[in-house]
Each structure stands twice: as structure tokens, then as C-alpha cells.
């Protein structure tokens, strides 16, 4: 039996399951198959990939899935997205969003930030991962170069987290602050700290960060079309 023999509704379910199980090659094949059947890139994204990642998100939140499994699922999603992204741009579909993410200056702890980055990619976002120890200029340059919607900053150390405020000030100085959604995270960071430094949101974990980013993009796209 081949994917080609599956009725459409079964194909979506198969795609969601393969994505859930992190089956990268299968998800890519199914993405091609759905496009061959005449579905638009937006439909393939919504009915197949996003629907699959939604199940992953719920099970991760509920403690059913292990982190390595979520990473596998996110990789499978990414494989599908690589096929869809150029087509989405061509068809003028609403932007899923671009995020510039990095650990701030003085801090080389990036595992949490990388998890957020992979989960964001898994949700279809384009992620520009700046790595560790980034000063304000590096963030600014990347934002301009990639026309980012969101900036994500992380810190593990209480001594480095104040630098987030320096970056936000630089965004203000460059006149970029209002166009950007500023998200912060990391073990010592809290919602209170985010408010204090005038960030827009605090992501308590990778899954929540993705939820917040998706909500922001939905709001932004709606505002644009309204």
C-alpha cells in the first residue's frame, strides 16, 4: 500500500501520526502527495502539519511525550515546512513568522534556548538562531537582515539577564521596538522581570513560548488584513 491509495481524510490523519512519531521522510512524502492532489500549501500546512503538531503540543504539556520525541516531531515538521515555505511565500499566504533568538551577552548557556528554537521551527516559524553571548548589535543586525517579527532572548544567569534590558533600549533607540514582539525566557527569568524590563512576553517553557508566538502572529496578521 502506498500513500497514493489513501483517501484524503486518511492522508491527513496518516500525516499527523507520522509527524507525532517523528517520521521525517514520511511526512515529507505526504506533504508532496497532498500538494499533488491539489491542496493549497496553506491547507497542507493546516490540515496536516499544524494539526499534527497541535497533538504533539498537548501531549508534551500533559507529560505524555519525552523531550527527544518532541524534537523528532519538530524535525519532521521542519521537513514538511521546507517543502511548503517557498510555496507559501509565492501564494501570499499569511506569514507564520520569523524569530531571531539568542542568549544575551555574557551567557553561554543555550540548551533551553535551542529547545525553544527547535519547537518554534516545529511550529513552522523561520528561526534565526544567533547562538550564545550576543550583544545588542548582533540582535539588531539579524532583525534588520531577516525582517523579524519576534525577538527571543534567554539567560541562565542572574548576572546576565539585566542585559536583556540593554537590548530592548537599543531596539527603542533604533526605532524597532514597536514593530517587534519581544519575548524573554530562562531559568531565573519571570513574568515580573519581563514586565519590569518592558518585554512583551515571558515564555515559561518551550511549549508556552510557541503558543505565545503563535497568538502574537495571529493577532498581527489579523491587524494587517483588517
Amino acid at each position: 500500500m502506498d500513500f497514493k491509495d489513501l483517501p484524503d481524510d486518511e492522508l491527513w490523519l496518516q500525516m499527523q501520526d507520522d509527524l507525532y512519531d517523528g517520521m521525517k521522510a514520511e511526512v515529507a512524502e505526504e506533504t508532496h502527495e497532498a500538494l499533488r492532489r491539489g491542496y493549497t500549501p496553506t491547507e497542507v500546512l493546516g490540515k496536516g502539519l499544524v494539526a499534527g503538531m497541535d497533538i504533539v503540543g498537548v501531549d508534551f504539556r500533559d507529560g505524555v511525550l519525552f523531550v527527544p520525541e518532541v524534537l523528532m516531531a519538530a524535525n519532521a515538521m521542519k521537513a514538511g515546512m521546507e517543502i511548503l515555505r517557498p510555496l507559501l511565500t509565492q501564494t501570499g499566504a499569511p506569514r507564520i513568522g520569523t524569530m531571531v533568538i539568542g542568549t544575551v551577552k555574557g551567557d553561554i548557556h543555550d540548551i533551553g534556548k535551542n529547545l525553544v528554537s527547535m519547537m518554534m521551527e516545529g511550529a513552522g516559524f523561520e528561526v534565526v538562531n544567533l547562538g550564545v553571548n550576543n550583544d545588542a548589535d548582533k540582535f539588531l543586525n539579524a532583525i534588520k537582515e531577516h525582517d523579524a517579527d519576534i525577538i527571543g532572548m534567554s539567560a541562565l544567569l542572574t548576572t546576565t539577564m539585566p542585559y536583556m534590558k540593554v537590548v530592548i533600549q537599543a531596539l527603542k533607540d533604533e526605532g524597532l521596538r514597536d514593530k517587534l514582539f519581544v519575548m524573554v525566557g530562562g531559568a531565573p527569568v519571570s513574568a515580573g522581570f519581563a514586565e519590569e524590563i518592558e518585554a512583551d512576553a515571558y515564555g515559561r517553557d518551550a511549549a508556552t513560548a510557541v503558543d505565545i508566538a503563535k497568538k502574537y502572529m495571529a493577532w498581527k496578521n489579523e491587524k494587517k488584513t483588517a
Partner: peptide
């Protein structure tokens, strides 16, 4: 790496 195969979806859902 691995050829695409259709696995038993129902069994996988049940396992989940």
C-alpha cells in the same frame, strides 16, 4: 534513510 511505509495507524493511536 528509510523508505516511506504506511504503518497501522489504529494500532499507533491505541498505543498512544
Amino acid at each position: 534513510a528509510t523508505p516511506p511505509v504506511i504503518t497501522d495507524r489504529r494500532a499507533r493511536r491505541e498505543a498512544r
